[in-house]
Amino acid sequence: MANKLFFRSALISTILSYLLIFVGGLVRVSGSGLGCPDWPKCFGRWIPPTNIDQIPAHIDPTAFNIVLAWIEYGNRMLGIIVGLSIIVMTVIAVLYFRNNSKILYSALSSLFLVGTNGGLGAIVVSSVLNPFIVSIHMILALFLVSVLSYGTIVSYKLVNSVKLSNILLSKKISISLIALWGLIVIEILLGTGIRTNIELIAIDNPLFSKGELLDALNSYKYLHSVLGFSLLFLSMYLCYLFKNDFLGLSKQLVYFIFGMILFQIFLGELMIFFELPQLTRLFHTWGSSWLVGIIIILYNTLQYEQS
């Protein structure tokens, strides 16, 4: 009963957190981060103003744009919902899982991460969207979904005794998965670095075209592409390692990882060579967050090899 309860709340928290990353990405690509100049309220109100007359006298109405305000506030509201959902999850963990350190610590650390990242949101606004701080805000969210994904799969196994895979967590598979996860984190940091630099260059050079912005970047932008293709090969190798497995959760996740990396490379090239950059950017970032969580789930679906 408690197992099921925790699994459900962990699953809901994880899904909501992924949605939150999507909405947060939407705020960044649509340039709505300053939609509310204050924090946590929006123009001094708990419900953003719908009309310029509702802005209190002490707040300058210059930046008032109802659309941007509501986009930014949507991110904050969903953040609060995620926070509440994680609080519920943590309460369940503290009540019923004091002896299960995996569950207890994943709940407590996700509570810590969601709180910290909410507070960081205030600094994002007060820093006038310093690209570096915005990126840390995103990276903390990746840590959050990693921990939540872990809590979800650990509790899933408590609820569900169905065998998930024939493949055992051999040293070879363990190392491949850990390497894949680590390299994806590095890849995300490189990608975030590229985005941060593009934004910093764009602030000083508002007239730069996309081509000029890309030219102004350091050569490590190529590293991002090279590592991307290396990840594709690593995931192909993983598919090979799972070739004899039945089509259970594990194998589905392995295929998902391969497909997602392929899709990410496609989106990355699309961003460089074609237009519609904002929506592509959004899914490029969001897809990478999926990979981080899914690899953790895959790792924990496998049984340890008996030695």
């Binding site: 939407l26 649509s30 340039g31 744009n65 109802i66 659309v67 941007l68 986009i71 959004l282």
Partner: peptide, 9 residues
Amino acid sequence: VIDKATKSR
């Protein structure tokens, strides 16, 4: 949303 934001500017 992106389209709305662009037009709102």
